[in-house]
């Protein structure tokens, strides 16, 4: 592995830049979700005679997904604290828990999707379901990529041990993970909770 020649200031500046750049990327991702939210807001009631969210969604299941994802965000934070202290075992532990919780979240979400599709409520059925599947599905896709990123990074940490580059990656990853939980807050509120109100 390459050893650092340049002064500390250079790498700190580089980390600052990359962190900022990743933050800007997260902002663009937020804007992309905004379009999906806007479409959902406009089209949510266009069920064309089909069942509405009120008839389809299970609030307890959505609450479970929310609590699981929230907890995974918390454990990711604890993992980051461990990373900053250079504690490889704790990093693998906490992020391992995060990975598992994220995986369970995905399973629950897929279960919901499969149930809908099995009952004939697919994304072809009407505009309301199209926008539901797209909004929630895109979030799920982001979670999937996050898990992939997490898995690869943890594998590298396990093999190579923690170093500053991998800690930087974990920092960006945990930013991504926290951000996904924040988006989920709004999905839970606007898609699931509001289905029973509008």
């Amino acid at each position: 592995m390459e050893t650092e020649h340049e002064p500390k200031g250079h790498e700190a500046a580089s980390d600052d830049r990359v962190g900022f750049g990743f933050w800007v990327y997260l902002m663009t991702d937020l804007l992309m979700f905004t379009v999906l939210f806007a479409c959902f807001a406009v089209l949510r009631n266009n069920t064309f005679g089909g069942p509405t969210g009120r008839e389809l969604f299970s609030l307890p299941s959505a609450l479970a997904e929310t609590l699981i994802l929230l907890t995974s965000s918390f454990t990711a934070g604890l993992g980051m604290l461990a990373a900053r202290l250079g504690n490889k075992r704790q990093v693998l532990g906490w992020f391992g828990v995060t990975f598992l919780l994220g995986f369970v979240f995905l399973v629950l979400e897929l279960k919901e999707f499969v149930t809908f599709v099995y009952d004939g409520n697919t994304w072809h059925s009407n505009a309301s379901l199209s926008s539901f599947f797209t909004l929630v599905g895109t979030h799920g896709l982001h979670i999937t990529f996050g898990l992939l990123w997490m898995g690869v990074t943890l594998a590298f940490i396990w093999k190579r041990g923690l170093d500053s580059h991998l800690v930087r990656k974990l920092t960006l990853l945990s930013l991504f993970w926290h951000f996904l939980d924040i988006v989920w807050i709004f999905i839970f509120t606007v898609v699931y909770l509001m289905a029973f109100l509008v």
Binding site: G19, R84, L162, S164, V167, R168, T171
Partner: peptide, 17 residues
Amino acid sequence: MSNEVRIPKVGSHHGTV
């Protein structure tokens, strides 16, 4: 295991438990 991890200033945080 490396203990010489420099704390990167990404996002500039000083989080605690």
